[in-house]
Design a protein around this nucleic acid. Structure first.
Lengths: 155, 155
DNA sequence: GTGAGTGCAAATGCTTTGCATGATG
DNA sequence: CATCATGCAAAGCATTTGCACTCAC
């Protein structure tokens, strides 16, 4: 699992502090294991699976069960997003540190590359559609599947 | 599994004929089992899982393995779409008979209800974004998660 | 010290696969 | 009658759960 060199140390620290607050407010305990998992998850670049995160922690890091349990907490805290990218069998996660805005994904069905994009127009339009159905929109998942430039041009 | 009263018999027949053609062209065999599964899948209303389809066929219908294998063929033929709706653990499928246009879903996180919508604006916008990234868009999955009118108004 | 958190291993649920048998072109 | 399709059961994988032990508060 790659960690992001571009992530600002202060953003990470802020998010970790936020996570601690979240745990306190919910009456959950602040444990070394939770913080270890949170730090790794939040500083990840790109998308990662629970198993990838788990193995990147190495021995004595945490058990896979606890990784799943902690990722759920991080998601609840709004610090991490779980998404089902087309083509992958399981769920993948992404850190929201430094980019809280919702965004969409373009997934290349050939090389698996994921391109992220943000579009207020798209969000606004979907919000409008939801409202017209009396639906209260909380989360948006927009995904396009196809071929990226590199794969179209013969790699 | 519900079958759709609103589906037109001629649409279904046309799609089944198309599936047979597809099988012939690909050199696959046209078997009773495949046609049985196809007919049920194509005439379904709403979303259904492979297991739901399988159990709706009853004894002597088909094995679950063959249901999966046939759904894959139907998807390849473009007659059925497989989608990962938020909240459900496995994949669900939907028939494209009578509504070939791509469409999005609003999924209620409380009752699981799925509202379908079609928006050319949304599609066009996503197409535009993809193009600007040199990405060749083949398939679109748009999903909103939240609360439907009924659940917001206290069921 | 007490209850929540953790690791472990077993259980689960969905999906795929290997292989012997059966049906299709 | 040669293949491909099917059923069955077993395997696979991601994820969840039960339970005894450990740690944070």
């Amino acid at each position: 699992m790659k960690t992001n060199a571009a992530i600002r140390a202060e953003d990470l620290a802020e998010s970790l502090a936020y996570f601690e607050d979240f745990l306190r407010k919910k009456g959950f305990k602040i444990t070394k294991t939770r913080l270890r998992i949170a730090e790794r998850a939040l500083s990840a670049s790109g998308h990662f699976s629970a198993v990838e995160l788990w193995s990147s922690l190495g021995d004595r890091g945490a058990s896979i069960a606890t990784v799943y349990r902690t990722l759920e907490l991080l998601e609840e805290a709004g610090l991490v997003r779980r998404c089902n990218l087309a083509g992958s069998s399981g769920a993948v996660y992404e850190s929201y540190v430094g980019k809280r805005r919702p965004h969409g994904h373009l997934v290349c069905r050939s090389c698996g590359r994921v391109i992220e994009f943000v579009s207020r127009d798209l969000e606004a339009k979907l919000e409008e559609i939801a409202t017209s159905h009396g639906f209260c929109l909380e989360e948006v998942m927009i995904q396009g599947v196809g071929l990226c430039r590199e794969c179209r041009e013969g790699r």
